[in-house]
Structure formats: structure tokens, C-alpha cells
Simulated assay, not measured.
Amino acid sequence: MSNLSTIIPERAANIGNFMVGRLLPFREKRMVGPFAFIDHMGPVSMGENENLDVPPHPHIGLSTLTYLFEGSIMHRDSLGFEIEITPGAVNWMTAGKGVVHSERTPENLRGTRKTLHGLQIWVALPKHLEFMEPSFHHTEKKDIPQFEIDGVSIKVIAGEVFGKKSPVPVHSDLYFLELKSGKRKKVKLGDYLFGESGLYILEGTVISEGNTYKPKQILVSKDSTLCEFEMAENTTVYIFGGEAFAGERHIHWNFVASEKETIEKARADWKAQRFPKVPGETEFVPLPD
């Protein structure tokens, strides 16, 4: 990745009953374009008596993007949606002024051995949309644009690049791409990308300017128009970024906002349980100190 400004290693974080690798935010780089938070979940193997159970918890000021490589998660939210997300599909939930959701192992997988592996991403909303009505959109794997350039398979998971547009209804100029290569390939994306750009190595090796980078690292480019790198054989990377917002975004727990007062109000509302409820759910994640 030419013109690298930041290399962010994956760091372990505890969420629910298993570990995830937290990638953003990072002290030296809080956001990349509108992307505010990235978690690498797993891969984790769960026994017959182990399940993912993240009770209802709130969000404001962002959209969540869930993308699985393996396994399955049952999503339930306060809008009334109950949808199982499977590998290659996209769950896109826009919190706006406030939404609540739970994430659990589906009933049909409880009591079985299973694996869970994927990415959970937060995309901050533009300031004028922070208080929009919440919404939810599920995109099936077959509807994600997929094509090949010089032997590299590319998916446009979200946003619009290469003249291809994902059906995921994003709220700002951004892109989230999957690149897979079975053979060693040079990749030049500078003519297609814009704004800030980051690269996450899921598997394999990336070579840039004589340096070699391995999985569990995010590389952040100083200038997306100079985005060039080499993928070794059997490498999968994710490219994400877009136009950065003017003004800072504050992140606290599950809340993203341009004003600290908005976060304080959300904290008080969750503590008093004034957020909408998830139908059929009575548990909830307590407000952290």
C-alpha cells in the first residue's frame, strides 16, 4: 500500500462470551473515512453448550455492518426485524436517533458444535443524519456485486466503486471491498478509490514498498490515489474508506455522536430504559460505568 501513514495491529477485546480482535478506533487513527469501529470476530469454535448471546443493547449515530465468513447470527431489533445472517450476506442497521438489537446463536444451531468468524463494523453517520429514523436492510450474498480484474476476485460489499454499486443503502460516500487472489498479483486501485483508505489483511500476505505484512493488521494509506500493493498467493484483504467527515466524532460504548451532550443523553436514556424494546426479549446489557 503505497504511502503508508499508519499500521494498526489487531488487539484482543472481550465481547459477550468470546474474544474479538478490535482494529478501530486506534489512538493514532480514530477513523478511516466514515469508518469508526472494526471488530474481527473469531474464528472461534463453540461446543454444544456454548453459544453467542449478546442481549439487547443500544446504538445511536451510526450504521452497523455485519459480514460473516463462517457461522450464523440471529439478529433481532427494536424495529421488529428478526433475520439470520449467514456467510457472505450483509446486515446493515442504521441506528440514527436510537435502535436496540440482540445478536445470538440461532435456535437450530444450539446444542451443536459450530464456528463463528466475521467482521462487525460501525460507520458514522453524517452530522445532518445523526438523528434520522432508524432502519434495517438485509442484503443476500447473491446480490453483492462480484467481478474479476486481472485474476483478482472483487466484491463491492458496500458503496460504489469500479462502476459497481452495492445494494446496501449507505448514507455517505464510502466503499467496503473484498479482494481475493489465488496467485501472486499486483493490485493498483488508486484510479478507483477516494478519500481515506484502509486495508485489512484477513489471510495471506501483502507486500508494499519492499515490506511484508501479515494477517491481523490494518494498513492506512496517506493518499488513496496511491493505493498500490502486491498480494501473495491465497490472500484475502478488505479495503475500506471514503470521504472523511468535517468535525470530530465522539465514541462512547455503543454510541457515536458529533456532540458529547448527545452521548450523555443516550447514556441516561439507556439507564432509564427509555430506548425502544426488542420484541420478545427481556434481557439487556447494563450501561457500563
Rank of each mutant, 00 (worst) to 15 (best):
residue 37 F to E: 01
residue 101 H to W: 02
residue 261 E to A: 15
residue 61 G to D: 09
residue 67 Y to Q: 01
residue 31 M to Q: 10
residue 43 P to T: 07
residue 93 M to R: 04
residue 245 F to Y: 15
residue 283 E to L: 04
residue 4 L to Y: 02
residue 196 E to V: 00
residue 166 S to F: 12
residue 159 G to W: 05
residue 205 T to R: 14
residue 287 L to I: 12
residue 274 R to I: 00
residue 19 M to Q: 09
residue 91 N to V: 03
residue 43 P to L: 06
residue 282 T to G: 09
residue 91 N to Y: 00
residue 208 S to H: 06
residue 83 I to G: 02
residue 253 W to G: 12
residue 52 L to H: 00
residue 141 K to D: 14
residue 273 Q to F: 08
residue 16 G to E: 13
residue 256 V to F: 00
residue 195 G to M: 03
residue 103 E to R: 05
residue 108 N to C: 01
residue 106 P to G: 14
residue 186 K to G: 15
residue 254 N to G: 05
residue 285 V to C: 04
residue 264 E to F: 11
residue 192 Y to H: 15
residue 249 R to D: 01
residue 32 V to R: 04
residue 236 T to I: 11
residue 24 L to F: 10
residue 108 N to G: 01
residue 132 M to D: 12
residue 80 G to Y: 06
residue 42 G to Y: 08
residue 269 D to A: 11
residue 184 R to C: 04
residue 144 I to Q: 01
residue 86 T to N: 05
residue 29 K to G: 07
residue 180 K to V: 12
residue 278 V to H: 06
residue 35 F to L: 05
residue 40 H to S: 12
residue 47 G to W: 02
residue 121 I to T: 10
residue 186 K to S: 15
residue 250 H to M: 03
residue 114 K to Y: 00
residue 131 F to N: 14
residue 24 L to R: 02
residue 69 F to T: 00
residue 11 R to H: 05
residue 102 S to V: 03
residue 258 S to W: 00
residue 74 M to H: 15
residue 31 M to A: 00
residue 90 V to T: 07
residue 115 T to W: 00
residue 135 S to K: 14
residue 57 H to G: 11
residue 16 G to M: 04
residue 220 V to P: 03
residue 187 V to A: 08
residue 83 I to V: 09
residue 132 M to G: 11
residue 53 D to S: 14
residue 257 A to K: 05
residue 53 D to L: 09
residue 97 K to E: 08
residue 264 E to Q: 15
residue 28 E to S: 08
residue 108 N to Q: 08
residue 276 P to A: 15
residue 194 F to E: 07
residue 70 E to K: 15
residue 51 N to I: 14
residue 130 E to R: 02
residue 3 N to I: 09
residue 41 M to R: 07
residue 71 G to A: 13
residue 37 F to A: 07
residue 63 S to C: 14
residue 180 K to E: 14
residue 281 E to H: 08
residue 68 L to N: 01
residue 65 L to M: 13
residue 211 N to G: 00
residue 248 E to Y: 04
residue 114 K to L: 05
residue 205 T to I: 11
residue 133 E to F: 02
residue 143 D to H: 09
residue 185 K to Q: 10
residue 70 E to L: 14
residue 246 A to T: 06
residue 142 K to S: 14
residue 214 K to F: 10
